[in-house]
């Protein structure tokens, strides 16, 4: 025995015996929820997309029909158009609003009021939102009635709430608040010293935005717009309640396929849903990649 061993009064460190942590119990409801409402439905969509509706055998017919059917392709195209329009429009408007509230020198209560409103408005969708806009902008809506009383009826000038443009306005209502909420931390991360350093080196405000601020914020703006795209692409209840299925969106077509209408084809519905899952997955991946890039810069 060496002197060192004699002096040691604590046992040698050894790995603690492996014990099951009770902490797992706390997160079990989350995993259960994720399984029941995300993994199980997604897996079902994948499986049934490749399943014949009658024989239940493996088939590529449903997937191929997506690219073969003009009605289906049209639905995807309208969904993409409305999603692009509302994500870019809502994104730009939301960004300008957030920038004005955070960096525009407005009183601080404006920021908290805007954030509270955006928190509520970004979650105000579906049937209540459709009803709110019908109450406001339908031919007998409040605003239209007022305008009519003033001698101007928008419906005589081509405006209709129940069309592509009307639906786009309704979608914008929940799109721009979401942009404000997500872009606000990125704008907060824009440091005042960058503007001062840029000015100190001789740059104008325009040059600062062109070379410094916009390149720094762009991944975040683009990422959030991708998220808005996905948000709009997956919307169903608002469009269904507002237009009653008149606008041929992917989500509405899927609904009619799965509901088992006379012309319904559940296999095709599942294939369309798989297409949506792919689009959403791409959107989330794009958002994550761009968001990570911004976080690295704004750290």
């Amino acid at each position: 025995m060496t002197a060192l061993d004699e002096k040691r009064d604590a046992p040698l460190a050894r790995p603690a015996p492996h014990k099951m942590s009770w902490a797992w119990l706390g997160v079990m409801p989350f995993f259960l929820f994720a399984f029941l409402f995300l993994i199980y439905p997604s897996s079902t969509i994948v499986v049934r997309s490749f399943q014949d509706s009658v024989t239940h055998g493996f088939t590529l017919k449903n997937i191929l029909a997506l690219f073969d059917n003009h009605y289906i392709l049209g639905a995807y195209w309208i969904s993409i158009e409305i999603s692009l329009l509302t994500s870019v429009g809502g994104g730009i408007f939301g960004f300008l609003l957030a920038y004005a509230a955070i960096r525009g020198g407005l009183p601080s209560f404006m920021r908290s009021s805007l954030m509270t409103f955006c928190g509520v408005a970004s979650n105000f969708a579906g049937v209540p939102l459709a009803f709110a806009f019908i109450a406001l902008l339908s031919p007998t809506g409040l605003l239209i009635s007022w305008l009519r009383a003033l001698g101007y009826n928008p419906y005589f000038h081509g405006f209709t709430l129940y069309t592509f443009w009307g639906l786009s306005i309704v979608y914008m209502y929940f799109q721009f608040p979401l942009m404000v909420l997500i872009i606000a931390p990125a704008i907060d991360g824009l440091r005042r010293e960058w503007l001062e350093a840029s000015e100190n080196l001789g740059a104008s405000s325009f040059q600062y935005w062109r070379y410094v601020a916009l390149p720094i914020l762009l991944p975040s703006i683009m990422g959030t717009m991708i998220l808005l795209f996905g948000n709009s692409f997956g919307a169903f209840a608002t469009a269904q309640a507002l237009t009653g299925g008149q606008i041929n969106l992917v989500t509405i077509v899927i609904g009619s396929q799965l509901r088992g209408d006379a012309l319904g084809d559940p296999g095709l519905g599942y294939a369309m849903a798989l297409g949506m899952v792919v689009v959403m997955a791409l959107a989330i991946t794009g958002y994550t990649v761009l968001q990570r890039r911004t976080e690295r810069w704004l750290r």
Binding site: E193, S198, N200, W297
Partner: peptide
């Protein structure tokens, strides 16, 4: 020319 406390280098 100015050198800032927190460097203020442009991260991009």
């Amino acid at each position: 020319g100015m050198v800032f406390q927190a460097y203020a280098l442009f991260p991009n």
